[in-house]
Design a protein around this nucleic acid. Sequence first.
DNA 1: GTCTATACAGTGATAGAC
DNA 2: GTCTATCACTGTATAGAC
Lengths: 210, 210
Amino acid sequence: MQIREESSIPDKRVQIIEISTDLFLQNGFSGTSMSKIAAACGMTKASLYHHFAGKEDLFVACVTHGYSAALVALRDIAGQPDLRPEDKFCAALNALYDTTIISPVGRMSPLIAEVSRTFPTVARSFHSEYIAPQQALLWEIIQEGVQSGAFRDADERQIFHLIFGPMVTLSLSREMFASFHDLDTHFPVDQLRDGHVDAILGMLRVTANG
Amino acid sequence: MQIREESSIPDKRVQIIEISTDLFLQNGFSGTSMSKIAAACGMTKASLYHHFAGKEDLFVACVTHGYSAALVALRDIAGQPDLRPEDKFCAALNALYDTTIISPVGRMSPLIAEVSRTFPTVARSFHSEYIAPQQALLWEIIQEGVQSGAFRDADERQIFHLIFGPMVTLSLSREMFASFHDLDTHFPVDQLRDGHVDAILGMLRVTANG
DNA sequence: GTCTATACAGTGATAGAC
DNA sequence: GTCTATCACTGTATAGAC
């Protein structure tokens, strides 16, 4: 007996989505043809078009498919009742680094920038269904810290600028310079992340003279 | 009598480069065909191919064309002898924001990410001829501050992560969500930049208890 | 659902006359 | 340097048999 996800997506659709997500990430949107996707899925183009109305439709499916998975981790952390606000915030930042740099959705930012001119719908959906909920959850966690007296009050957009900026750029850089043999020397994720989290905490913590 | 730039690039080449840069920024690399470029330049494809060996060649020319212009401002600031280190640093960050968000080179990051898999040469050139010199100049300015006692010593990669991260992401976001009618409300450049510069200064300044 | 076969527009690029 | 004409190819997408 197969266990189904709550969303009733046929298995074959999911399979196609995961394979084509890999191809999109490797070769970009325009660099990935429906022929290549069909071949990688072990079927013909005509069969592929039976499952998805077109290339845009397939791409949107790839992007949206990752939303829930990427938000789950953050939701779990936000829901922990026994974590101190500062620890919860750190856990949230680490989770965000993971999704931004490792998970397909996070790594898809350059792709979405690529297609956003042709398909503005993709960008709108990406923002309203992924970016906005992510920021809402993080803001909730920050506000808990403010109310408990651990964090100072900060401007929302400003703090997001400083939090998401480095991690998104790190993801972009690693995609952009993926051909570098010394990628991890130029862009050491763990080290940069830890320093970044420390810096943000230093800014948010209530100091004696604050 | 025509005044020539020091680089002896024919005027027509420059004209083509500037027109096609606009098109690349508007429609991406794959979304911009040689036919469209030729038409926008008021010539045929064959004539266009007389000036550039191919599409990749033209794209590389577009990217490299912006290098010098974008680095000039930073070089000027670094060369000012009568500026206090902290003021020089602020001026440099403001100049970097301008080039990253306004100038074509800065806005081309998503494009370079798009083509980097197909043409790794582009990414390498972008890094060695633009990113690296930019960071070298900025690091020089920071070191002046350290030697004068105004700044504390900081890890190079770490501080670049925090400096370039937000401004590159802001540029990427503005390209990605260019279709938003309230773009400047979501991503107010001046405000985010000022807050960011303040935050970086707060981290670099030597404090009493440091 | 999957296949073969195909339509048809568009791509990057070239040959050769002027 | 610019043109017309054309190349070989790939792109997305569809029709219709099985």
